[in-house]
C-alpha cells in the first residue's frame, strides 16, 4: 500500500515534467591527467592520449588541435487546465574545451583545458546557480 502511495505521489510530483539531457563529444580530456612538456610533447603524443581532435586549425608557424565536450540540459514544466497553461522552462549549456598548439616541428608550444562541466541534478533543475 505504501509503495502504491509513493508511486502515486511521485507521479503527481512529476506531472507535466520534461528532463532532456544531451552530451556532445568525448570528454576524456576533462578528467584524464595531462603531463605534457612544451618543446618535447609531439602531435603523436597528444593523439595517442585523446585520439584525433574535433577541429584542426593551422597557420604559419602554428597548428591548433581543439577537443570539445558539451553538456546541454533542458527542464520544463507545462501544466494545462482548460484554457489556462502554466509553463516554465530552464536551459543549461556548459562547454569543455582543450586547445593544444604546436610549432612547425609539431612540438607542443602550449595548451589549455577548461573545467569539467558540472553534472548535478539540482543545478539542472535551477535549484542551484
Amino acid at each position: 500500500m505504501r509503495r502504491v502511495a509513493a508511486a502515486l505521489l511521485c507521479s503527481l510530483a512529476l506531472s507535466g515534467c520534461l528532463y532532456q539531457i544531451k552530451q556532445v563529444g568525448d570528454d576524456r580530456f576533462l578528467t584524464a591527467p595531462i603531463d605534457w612538456q612544451p618543446g618535447k610533447t609531439t602531435v603523436r603524443d597528444v593523439v595517442d592520449a585523446f585520439g584525433p581532435p574535433d577541429v584542426i586549425r593551422w597557420s604559419a608557424g602554428r597548428l591548433l588541435f581543439v577537443y570539445r565536450a558539451e553538456r546541454q540540459v533542458v527542464t520544463s514544466l507545462v501544466l494545462s487546465f482548460y484554457l489556462k497553461v502554466f509553463s516554465n522552462e530552464a536551459g543549461r549549456h556548459e562547454d569543455g574545451t582543450l586547445i593544444v598548439a604546436f610549432d612547425d616541428r609539431d612540438r607542443l608550444v602550449y595548451y589549455g583545458v577548461s573545467e569539467h562541466p558540472r553534472e548535478d541534478l539540482a543545478g539542472d533543475l535551477g535549484l542551484r546557480r
Partner: peptide, 24 residues
Amino acid sequence: IPGIANARFRLVSARERASKLMLF
C-alpha cells in the same frame, strides 16, 4: 477528466559522438 493531460513525464537522453580516424 479535467487536467488528465498533465499526468505525463518525459525523459530524453541524447549523446553525440564523433568517430575519427587520423593517418600520419
